[in-house]
Design a protein around this nucleic acid. Sequence first.
DNA 1: ACCTGAACACCGTTCAAGT
DNA 2: ACCTGAACACCGTTCAAGT
Lengths: 170, 170
Amino acid sequence: MVNRLDDVVTGALEVLDAYGLEFCSMRRVAGHLGVQPSALYHHVPDKQTLLALMADRIVAGVSTPDAGPVEKRAYALCHDLRAAMLGIRDGADVVATASAFRLGASRLEAELVDVLGDRDGSRTLLLFVFGHTQATQMHRMAASVGAVEPDDDLDGSFDRGLEIILRGLC
Amino acid sequence: MVNRLDDVVTGALEVLDAYGLEFCSMRRVAGHLGVQPSALYHHVPDKQTLLALMADRIVAGVSTPDAGPVEKRAYALCHDLRAAMLGIRDGADVVATASAFRLGASRLEAELVDVLGDRDGSRTLLLFVFGHTQATQMHRMAASVGAVEPDDDLDGSFDRGLEIILRGLC
DNA sequence: ACCTGAACACCGTTCAAGT
DNA sequence: ACCTGAACACCGTTCAAGT
């Protein structure tokens, strides 16, 4: 079986969605691809790099609308980003961790700075989106296992947090 | 050698500060305490619980001043919390992860709700403090190894982010 | 270019047994 | 109450070698 780097990332995302980050090991990804664990190191120098590539793919379709009032554009980006991360198991964890590593240098942050014209404001907004989405995803997981009573207004809480920051920003 | 739960948490925090979260394994903590790995399970049901106890200890001294204008009290709490997490290697990671698990149910969030009278505002503020401090600590680690040019205004960036949220809140 | 097979130095956790 | 010793089922990564 022949794999390219793209196939490896795709396979890793399939394992992530099926088993969660905790069990998304190099050995499991290799098994899923029908290959020995060591074969992955032909495509990727280490696990951290693979996780960064997975994060890039998760947010690949997210971007800022290029028309409308500043506030609406920022709002739309944040909502898209949240949806993309919620679209795959543990997606928020994967993206947040990878992004923390290059804070100040991520595409999303650069786009937001472009829209808002405010470095610290963009960072504040992004950190909130990551943090809140991680908490949402964690809470949903815990609730689906019955470990906690479900919170039915996580989306509302996200919106209101977003509005607090945008209010302070504009 | 006889250990209590408190000694185990203390030992774990020493290992954390000396080697970082990545190498803060149950086996290493046990070794540090001069005990077999299995001995830890007499004190703690699993690693996750130990990490939660470590997080509690890291923020144990943090609390809201009970006088002054609302904004100053919230500001002081956030700064104290940040300082406590920065006071130990990977402290922000440990506290943020443990807190994400009980969002809505942590002592710090309850105190903040008391001061601000706003659930979503408190959550927004806390998520920012965790996210920004994690990024700060990560960046400092990377800079100290020469992997990245040091950013000399992380503290200023934190303050400005805090002000954006407090402005939107009051 | 892409992969195998074997090895190295680790993990978290369980469990019977000891004191 | 606190711990040992041994085991189980895993990790990430390296490296010589194969096609």
